[in-house]
Simulated assay, not measured.
Amino acid sequence: MRTGSRIGSLLVLVWLVIGAIAAAQRGYFSGGDTSCASAATIAVTILAGPLNYVGVNPQIECELPQPSQ
């Protein structure tokens, strides 16, 4: 059972590394201000992993509520 969990952990790690590479190739890590939408897009791109290379291009739109005055 331990071998199965090691293989599973390795697969998840490789999946996330591929997603991070895809996000870097799209220029998501290169400076600028970070908004809710850009942070969410980076996270979803990393979670999509290798699916980025078969046409998945996740984009997230979000707006944070403004504080009352």
Rank of each mutant, 00 (worst) to 15 (best):
T45K: 09
V44R: 13
G55M: 03
W15I: 02
I21S: 05
I60A: 09
A37P: 02
V54D: 02
L13Q: 11
P58C: 01
V56D: 01
G55N: 04
C62G: 04
Y53M: 00
I42M: 13
E61F: 13
Q69Y: 12
Q25T: 08
V12Y: 08
E63M: 07
V12L: 15
L13F: 14
E61Y: 12
T3H: 11
I7W: 13
L13K: 11
I21R: 07
L10Q: 08
C62L: 00
A40V: 01
S68I: 14
I42R: 08
I18F: 08
G8S: 09
C36G: 08
T3Q: 13
N57R: 15
L51F: 14
A43S: 12
Q25Y: 06
G31N: 12
Y53D: 00
Q25R: 14
S5V: 15
Q59I: 10
T34P: 00
V14Q: 05
Y53V: 00
T3I: 13
I21Y: 04
V14H: 03
S38A: 04
I7K: 14
E63V: 11
A39F: 09
L11I: 14
R6N: 11
G19A: 02
I18M: 09
G31H: 10
W15A: 04
G31D: 12
V17K: 03
V54I: 15
M1H: 10
N52S: 05
L16N: 09
V44K: 06
G4H: 03
P67M: 05
M1S: 15
I42H: 01
P58G: 02
C62N: 01
V56F: 06
N57K: 12
G31F: 02
R2T: 15
L51R: 10
Q66R: 15
L11W: 08
L51H: 05
P50I: 11
I7C: 07
L16T: 09
A24E: 07
T41L: 02
L47F: 12
A22W: 01
I21T: 09
T41Q: 03
V14G: 06
I46N: 10
S38N: 10
Q66T: 13
V44I: 12
G31R: 09
L51A: 15
A22Q: 05
A40T: 03
L47Q: 07
A24F: 15
F29Y: 15
N52L: 00
I18N: 01
I46P: 01
V44S: 13
E61W: 12
G8A: 13
P67V: 09
C36M: 11
A37Q: 10
Y53N: 00
T41R: 01
R6I: 11
V17C: 14
Y28C: 00
T34E: 11
G8F: 10
P67D: 08
A39P: 01
R26N: 09
G55Q: 06
A39G: 05
A43R: 08
E61L: 12
C36R: 03
F29S: 05
P65M: 06
Q59S: 08
N57L: 06
G32M: 03
Q66G: 05
F29R: 03
V17R: 07
V17L: 15
Q66I: 07
D33K: 06
D33I: 04
G32L: 01
V44L: 15
P67I: 04
A43K: 01
F29I: 05
A23E: 02
V44N: 06
A48P: 00
V12C: 10
R6G: 09
S35R: 02
G27N: 03
L16Y: 14
S5D: 11
T3M: 13
N57S: 12
Q25C: 08
I18G: 02
